[in-house]
Every structure is written in C-alpha cells, then in structure tokens.
Design a protein around this nucleic acid. Structure first.
Length: 600
RNA sequence: GGGGGCGUAGCUCAGUUUGGUUAGAGCACUCGACUGUCACUCGAGAGGUCGCGGGUUCGAGCCCCGUCGCUCCCGCCA
C-alpha cells in the first residue's frame, strides 16, 4: 500500500491523517490527528508531544504564538499514553530543528486545539523506552498486554503477521484453492497429541475435542470434489509448551486432489517464496531435496541446518581393524562408528571437549571419542592404536579435532546432531543472514518401539506408503518409506505433509498395522473417513505450515509469544484475561461434570 | 514428570559472595522553574509485604526447607 492511499484509507470523521505518514509534502495543510501521547517535553513557554498511532510518531508543538493559554496548559498536563485529538497546521522545521531519527522529523504539527479524549492512568509498564532500556519482564508484559501491544515492535510484528496472512490467501486463492472452514468442535482422536476436550451439555458424559489439525476434514473435502482447499486453521494440542510451541496455534493448511508429491512441493516452494518476499527476502525458487536417510546419515537429524558443513561420516571401516576395545566391541555388536571432523577444534581445552561429551551423553550416547591432531601429533585415548592406514583414511589436517560415537544409529545420530550444532556455534560457522531451505522426504512409514516392536506412524496414519516399497517388501511394512515431506529452514521445520492414502482397503490395513485391528474399532474411530474414501476418493495430498513459527522467523522475534496477540505462558495460562479458571458448581452440574480433589 | 535460570520501588537493576545502622541508583510519578526540545534540562518530593510460608540466628533481602509465578531445556508434541 502506498503511503498516500494508506493515509487516505485511514482518514475518518475525527482525523484527517495518521501520525507516522506525514511528510514535507504535507506542509501547509491543516490536519486533525488522534493518537496516544508517547512522550512529552515541557519547556515552559513551549511544549512538545510525540503523538503515536500505529503508523508511527509525529511531533506536536504547542506555543503561545499559535496555541491559546488553555491549550498550552492542557498539553503540559496530559499524561503519557493518554489519547488525544488535536487540530493544527503542518509546518516545516528549521534545518537545525529537524530530527533525522524520525520518519516525520522534517515537519511538526503546530497545534491550535487539543482535546484529551482518553486520559490514561500512569502505565504499569513503559511503552516509550529510552535508548538501551530493556523491555519489562515477560510476565508483566503478558499481564498488561493492552500496554505491551502498543510497543512499536509488537505492532510491527502483528502488522507483518497480517500481511503474511493476506499474501497466503491471495497466493492460494489465485491458484484455485478454496478457503473452506472446518469445525472447531470435533471428535476426539486418541492418537497423537493430547486433545483439548469440551464437555457436551446435551449429551451427558460425552465430549467434543478441539482439532489438532483439520486433517480428516480436508481429506473429506477431497472426496467431495473441492479439489483444492486451504484454510488458515487454528489448531489445539494439550502438550507442554516451548518458546516455539503454543497450545493454540495457526497453520496454513492445504490439500489438493489429482496431485503427486512434486505438485504439492512446487506449491509449497511458491507460497514460501511469496511469504519471504513479503518480508523482504528473495529466496531460491526451488529447494533442495534430501532423503530422510541422508539427513540422518550426514546430519543426524531429520531437519538439518545446512548453513554450515561439519557433515557426519561413517568411520566403521577405519576403526574395524584397530585393537581399540571400545570401538571393537561396538562394531562386533553390530554398531557403526560415526563422527565428524572439526577444523580448529584441536585448540579446545579438555574441559571444552568434556562439555561436548556431556551433550552427547545427554542425548543418550555412552561417550564421545576424541582424537586431536595438532603439530603433527595425534592425541587422545585411541592415538596409540592408530595404524598408518587409519591415519591415511582419517586424513586429518593440522588443528583438527575428530569426534566419534560408537553406538546404534538411534543413539549416535541424535548425539552427533547435538555435537555438530554446538561445534558450529563455537566455531561461529552459522551465517545468520543465510536462508537454507531443504525438503526432507522419504521418511520411514513407521517407527518401531525398541522394547515391544510395535509400529507407530512417523507422520500420521493417513500417509501413503511409497509405491516402490509396496512392491519390493509387501510383507515388511517396517521397511516402507512414506510419501511424506517436511520443509526445513536452517534446522527448523516450517511445515510438513504427505500424499494420503485414498484406497479404503489400504487405509484399513494401515490402521491394522498400527494396532487398530478390529473392523468395529476402525469404524467407530475413523468410520467417517473410511466411508468418505469408499464413496469415491481421488488421489490427494497436502501440506501444513506452522504459521506462527513462520511469522516469528520473518519478524526476527525470539519467541512465538511476540507474534501472537494474546499468547499463553509456558504453564498454558493467559495472564491478561486470566484463563483457565474454576467455574461454579452450577455450571459444572449442567455439564454433568465433577471436579475431583486432586485437581482442585 | 525431570533439570537449569530468574523473582528487591510502577519499570530496569545494584545490594546476596563474607548475615549487622534508616535497603540504594536510573527511568517513570507528584510539585516547582524554564520559549525549540526530541531519552529536554535543573531543583524538591513521594514511593518497599526484598514473590509467599516456615526455620536457623541476638539479628535474615542475604543462610536452610517448602511453596507459587515467569522463563529455557529434556521428556512429550501421530
């Protein structure tokens, strides 16, 4: 929106203009403004007020040459954060009176009339901060959110959020995607995250659930022929919180029919490109693809940060011939020896490497094997076991520190992932300006419980297995890959999706593999999906993006709470309005509920 | 469920290491002065359940135990 059209769009009966958009072009105009007193400076015979609205600040000037005595008195007395209406003339400031730090610093408003329409009590926390002054504690910011949201930083975040929503809607709508809504009161699903439950008044003892995602509904839309769907969907998960996880969050939810994986990924690339462009970043039109296998093999995790190297490698063949007990016994037990080489790491102290080992142990590894190569000498527990062949194969450069884990992959990968990330941080290898997108795909269909051998869906139970694997290992579902994909940026998952199962028989088999064996149980829990698939389902698939997380990244905010107007604390409370709360016995009785003592 | 950090004036913090007079500073607030400031400046003033509860001690903001809140991480998040 150009400033001119935005300026006129925001004009009302009470104001002709907004504060932050006034410029030298406006000199000579008479304007009416409304806004909040950001700061004021009373010099006796002349008073200045920085007036703030969502567009920014402008300086109001009061002086007896153009304001009457009563107006000057009011201006000197008005408290910060009060709402005022004023009328005055835009004048150019003399050259030595301009403020280059202010968008509106070349002009000021000589106020002839002032009304305090919304006097404010002294604010509980400051909105205008001095240079270098910290923001108030988050607890106070959340408790006094009506003030916190006045801060220009949060205003910008929420304005950006709005723009990103509009870009999403326009991008998808222009490509034939229909914005369709799905219920908020839905059916509980025992799988996956814990549901938020809502008791039914008219059906004693029965409950709705708030949706964890509109997954099944959007698949049913496909069965209905709404072949391109999207929704800016509010989702709910009753799990513990993190800086990047809220119990109530927004996703851009997308589903399409007659598509294969690359159709969805191309749409995803385009949408992400449009969102990043709106925030001022031009990114590649096409993202790299990486298999889950390679991600785990070379980075130890399924959402690799590709802004730096430090790739993991398999050193089993190097270690196998060595008479080093730790690795020999692990290899004999069927494990591999994997590790990474950190250039310059040889300079780290014993304590610093111990800290890395503690990270690896925290991730479940028994230890972290270190080999330092500096000044032509090898140092570390396995140094004296190295053969010439092993030294040649390792090919270390002077100053290198090599770190190894000898353990099953399920242990070694997460341990090496953490070590790799910490080494990158220490070596300052992370270029914060870099945006490295990658699509990780070919996830395994299931993960096996190491204790029981039971299968659990890695993605969700509606994800289609890879057709090649159905042919190659029809009777070994644990080896199936899924037609699932995640979009990853700099080690953060932006979104994920899959091609879905559209064959009701296959869907039924999938439920059975996941332990929902009986037809009765399948029908009771997922009958509405199976019926839809049986009624004639097109091939379909989709993706969902974590919108709050995207807004956080593009706003450069440290927490999701800074891009959500009224977020929850890590204890899932709303400090501002004060939720949740106990309700009256009458209300409980009407819902056929009793609160037990332990929860009181 | 587990681990770490924080909690002192309206706000941001110092004081806690080594217990000891009346708990301090900056900003904000109130009053006063000031006609060109933009973090205005200057003068004066008011403002405290040191999160809460218990304990140790002649004496606790400081030590101990418990508890509450916020936060970060692990588990969890198909």
């Amino acid at each position: 929106m150009s400033s001119l059209s935005e300026q006129s769009a925001l004009a009302t009966t009470l104001r002709t203009d907004t504060c932050g958009l006034l410029r030298s072009d406006d000199v000579g105009r008479t304007v009416r403004l409304g806004g909040w007193v950001h700061r004021s400076r009373d010099l006796g015979g002349v008073v200045f007020i920085d007036l703030r609205d969502r567009t920014g600040l402008v300086q109001l000037a009061f002086g007896l040459a153009w304001s009457d005595a009563e107006t000057l008195r009011l201006a000197a007395a008005v408290g910060v954060e009060s709402v005022v209406l004023c009328e005055g003339d835009i004048v150019a400031r003399d050259a030595d009176r301009q403020n280059p730090d202010m968008q509106t610093g070349a002009i000021e408003v000589r106020v002839r009339a002032l009304r305090i329409v919304g006097p404010a009590v002294t604010p509980a926390l400051p909105v205008a901060r001095g240079r270098g002054e910290k923001v108030a504690a988050e607890e106070l910011r959340l408790r006094h959110r009506y003030l916190d949201l006045r801060r220009p930083e949060l205003q910008e975040n929420l304005v950006l959020r709005h723009r990103l929503l509009q870009v999403s809607r326009r991008y998808l709508s222009e490509r034939g995607y229909l914005e369709l809504e799905t219920p908020i009161l839905t059916k509980p699903t025992p799988e996956g995250a814990r549901d938020y439950l809502v008791p039914s008044r008219v059906h004693p003892g029965e409950f709705y659930a708030l949706p964890q995602s509109p997954q099944i509904y959007k698949q049913l839309f496909m069965c209905c022929g709404f072949d391109r769907y999207f929704q800016i969907a509010r989702c709910f998960r009753d799990e513990d919180l993190r800086a990047d996880r809220q119990p109530e969050f927004t996703q851009i939810d997308i589903e399409a029919s007659f598509v294969e994986r690359e159709d969805i990924l191309a749409l995803a690339e385009g949408l992400i490109g449009a969102l990043w462009l709106e925030a001022g970043h031009t990114i590649p039109a096409h993202f790299d693809r990486m298999s889950y296998h390679d991600a785990m093999e070379y980075y130890g995790c399924d959402r690799p940060d590709l802004r730096y190297g430090l790739r993991l490698a398999d050193y089993t063949a190097v270690f196998a011939p060595l008479a080093f007990a730790v690795t020999a016994s692990a290899i004999a037990a069927g494990s591999r020896v994997r590790g990474l080489v950190v250039p310059g790491g040889a300079a780290w102290s014993r304590k610093q490497v111990d800290e890395l080992e503690a990270l690896a142990k925290g991730a479940g590894a028994g230890g972290l094997l270190r080999l330092r190569y500096a000044d032509g000498a090898y140092d570390g527990p396995l140094a004296k076991f190295l053969t010439d062949e092993a030294r040649a194969a390792l090919a270390l450069t002077d100053g290198d520190l090599a770190l190894f884990v000898a353990a099953p992959d399920r242990v070694a990968s997460p341990a090496l992932d953490r070590v790799r990330q910490e080494c990158a941080r220490r070596c300052a290898l992370i270029d914060e300006t870099m945006q490295r997108f990658v699509v990780v795909m070919d996830f395994p269909m299931f993960e096996e419980d190491p204790a029981t051998g039971a299968l659990a869906a890695v993605h969700h139970p509606f994800t289609a297995p890879h057709p090649e694997d159905l042919v190659s290992f029809p009777d070994h579902p644990a080896r199936w890959r899924a037609l699932a994909y995640d979009v990853v940026l700099n080690g953060t998952e932006l979104g994920g999706g899959s091609i879905r199962i559209s064959d009701p028989a296959m869907q039924s088999r999938m439920f059975a593999l996941l332990g929902i064996g009986s037809t009765d149980e399948q029908e009771r829990r997922f009958g509405f999906l199976l019926e839809g698939l049986r009624a004639g389902a097109p091939p379909h698939g989709g993706i969902a993006f974590g919108f709050d997380r995207i807004a956080m990244l593009l706003a450069g905010a440290p927490s999701l709470r800074d891009v959500i107007a009224f977020p929850k604390t890590t204890a899932a409370r709303s400090l501002f309005e004060g939720a949740p709360v106990a309700v009256s016995p009458d209300d409980l009785a009407e819902l056929h509920l009793t609160v037990t003592e332990t929860s009181a």
